[in-house]
Design a protein around this nucleic acid. Sequence first.
DNA 1: GCCGTTTTCGGCCCGACTGTTTTCAGTCG
Length: 569
Amino acid sequence: MNKESIIKSLRKLAQYLELEGENPFKIRSYLKSADILEHTSESIESLIESGNLRNLEGIGDAIEKKILAWYHDEPVPTLEKMQNKYPSSLLELFDVQSLGAKRIRSLFDNLHITNLDELYKACLEGKVSTLPGFNKKIENKIIESINYLNLWKGKFLLSQGWDVAQKFISEIGHIINKENIYVTGSLRRYEETIRNINLLFVTDDVNSIQEKLLTLYPKMGKTSSENEIILQSSDIPILIDFTDKKDLGTKLVFHTGSEDYINVLINHCLQKNYSFSRQGLFNMDGNSILSETEKKFFEIIELPYLPPETRNLYENMDLVSKNTKNLVTLENIQGIVHCHTQYSDGHNSISELAEYCIKKGYKYIVICDHSQSAGYANGLSVDEIKKQHEEIVNLNDRYKPFQILKGIECDIKSDGSLDYPDEVLKSFDVVIGSIHTKLEMDKTTATQRLLKAIKNPHLDVIGHISGRLLLSRKGYPLDMDAILKACSDYNVCMEINANPQRLDIDWQNIYKARKYNPRFVISVDAHHIEGIEDIKYGVFIARKGILTPDEILNCKNAEEFKNWFKQKK
DNA sequence: GCCGTTTTCGGCCCGACTGTTTTCAGTCG
């Protein structure tokens, strides 16, 4: 079993034990060990061979034994026993809002419900609300939540697609050179969620490559295209099509999409007396017109070139094309913003994070732990803030000219006020205000809550504005125009939260924000060192929203960045 | 189940919210 499967098994076992009503601390041990494995850069092979597994804090004798068994594909009796008792589809119910172990167990024992479909049916029949611990309101919430889960079925996060694609491309390096593989489809457009990974291979030898791939990976199906194959190397289907180099440009355009954009191009081509399809571009005599690059293709059909990630904005293609000359890139980012440390719920120390940033060539980092009322995340008391600031001052001496800035992710409470008194808020270089509690709000309540925070002179940045979690939680509704305008009026900057589960504010609203000209900061919301690497997803989303470096504050150097917030205070 | 140690077992994060059982169990962040 590989590392990912072992981590999944640990989490599965934790859920089973919860159903059994086991000691909550025991359950937490399993979850903790899964987290530890997930965030250890060392490979599972080397952890086991070196005997270091047992040395990881949180992994003791019992869990080590289980990990070793899974690694050697041997059965783990505790898990086997659970799997005999409960069908594994029962664990799907943990994704449903308002359902925890107790209620799931009751559904299983009393109504013999074993999966989402059965639960949905039982809710519609009104059976669920009659059980002790349930009622009509909860039943309706369950229905709503399952409807929502179904919307996301078969979808994956952009980051999951990205990781699987990179791994797959390196795995097949002996079959086809990396330089001849092009990522297309929704992944190339940096969509927030994806269904497939689309790849385009440049080769003259389709058959031999197909054969070699099919000996390595199971084939999942066939598409309408003659050559295209669908492979499974993880949960995400990988669709591979082939082209020769001479027509790479045309094929890249077609396979990158989106579907709507391609339909617009097809109609446009017809008007220009061309026919454009999966097969390529043809004139009215049926002669193929080849383009080795996308730029050439667009020149031929006389349309502006749009970078792949902006092709959803085809309705304003002239305007978009003009503004895409200087889109932000990863190289423009000078500082890493919004990192949690061991002071609250982060896993690393300030110096570990700073040293990683220095190694990566960044010029500054903004530490933003949770504020005092965030008890669940070990939010910082006023005394702890003082202690952290002292540590930052000392470290800044050590790491010069690199700078560590004092920030906070301050809870915006339900009445819109911030979580510290003014004199404490004054002590930070950057105050990010975020909503973490009381998320179920109507549009007016949510908008008013944020507007009040924006008008607070100490607030610098609005964090993950909608509160959404991709593939799991819808954000609260907002009057985005009112908020964007207020941000502009009160000089409050908008966070583009690069955590792949959030990507919040979303790119559509970044694009929409243009008319108010607000400033943005691309933040990582990192709880581990590797979370810093999420910065690229923030850049992708900023590019989709057509942002240039001068609109993004952490593209400035440390002094300019600090001064922007100072002049506003 | 892990950790630390008082070495044999106790502590491990907990407050807010929800719906209602109006005092509490279950869920959530």
